[in-house]
C-alpha cells in the first residue's frame, strides 16, 4: 500500500502515536461516562466524543506540518466548546442518515466558508472531503489527499483492531 519506504516508517510512527493518543482518550471517555444504564443520549454523546477523539488524536499524531491536520485541529479546537454545550443541552443532530453521517464536521466548516456549493465537480468534492482543502492549489490538494488517505487507513486499522479486541 505504501510505495515509499520513507513514508512507510513515517506511517508506522504515526500509527504508534495515534494508537497511544486514541487509547488514552478512550480511557478518559470511558471513565467519564460510567453510568450504569446508558441512555440513548448518552450513547450518542459518547459516539461523538469517540469520533472527536479519533480525529483529534489522528491530527495531533500527524502534527501541524500538514494542512489537513492543522485544519482539523483548529476545527476541533474551535468546535469543542460548542459541541459540549450542544450535548449538554441535548439538541443532538441525527448522525444516522447516510449522507449526513459522512462529513459532518467538514460540512459544518463548509457552511461557514463556502456558502455556495453549486459547481460540483470532482475536485470540489475532494476539496470538501479533505479538511482545509477549500483554499488549496490542486497539486497541494492532491498531496494532502494522499497523506490524508494514508492516515485514514491507519486510523481505520487501529480502530478496527481496538474494536475487535473489545468485542472479542
Amino acid at each position: 500500500m505504501n510505495p515509499h519506504p520513507s513514508s512507510c516508517s513515517n506511517g508506522r510512527s504515526i500509527r504508534t502515536r495515534f494508537a497511544r493518543r486514541f487509547l488514552r482518550a478512550l480511557k478518559k471517555i470511558g471513565s467519564k461516562g460510567s453510568s450504569s444504564r446508558p441512555s440513548p443520549r448518552d450513547i450518542s454523546w459518547r459516539c461523538r466524543r469517540v469520533k472527536i477523539a479519533a480525529d483529534a488524536s489522528m491530527a495531533s499524531a500527524v502534527g501541524p506540518r500538514r494542512v489537513w491536520s492543522r485544519t482539523m485541529l483548529n476545527m476541533l479546537r474551535s468546535r469543542s466548546h460548542a459541541c459540549l454545550h450542544a450535548s449538554r443541552l441535548g439538541n443532538s443532530r441525527r448522525p444516522g442518515a447516510d449522507r449526513h453521517a459522512v462529513g459532518k464536521r467538514k460540512r459544518l466548516v463548509l457552511k461557514r466558508k463556502l456558502p455556495n456549493r453549486l459547481g460540483l465537480n470532482q475536485v470540489n468534492q475532494l476539496r470538501r472531503l479533505v479538511p482545509g482543502g477549500e483554499a488549496m492549489d490542486l497539486d497541494i490538494l492532491l498531496d494532502e489527499t494522499a497523506h490524508y488517505i494514508k492516515c485514514l487507513a491507519t486510523q481505520v486499522k487501529v480502530m478496527r483492531s481496538i474494536v475487535d479486541y473489545c468485542s472479542a
Binding site: L26, I29, G30, G33, S34, S35, P38, I43, R46, C47, R49, V50, K51, A53, A54, D55, P95, A101, V102, G103, Q122, V123, Q125, L126, L129, V130, T145, Y148, I149, L152, A153, Q155, V156, M159, R160, I162, V163, C166, S167
Partner: peptide, 29 residues
C-alpha cells in the same frame, strides 16, 4: 478522482462506524 473520492468517503464512513461501535462497546469494558 471519482475513485479517490469514493475511497476517502468509505474511509471516513469506516471511521464513523468504528467510533460508533467503540461508543457502544465502551461502557461494557
Amino acid at each position: 478522482l471519482d475513485e479517490i473520492i469514493n475511497h476517502v468517503h468509505s474511509l471516513q464512513r469506516k471511521v464513523e462506524f468504528l467510533s460508533m461501535r467503540l461508543a457502544a462497546v465502551n461502557p461494557r469494558i
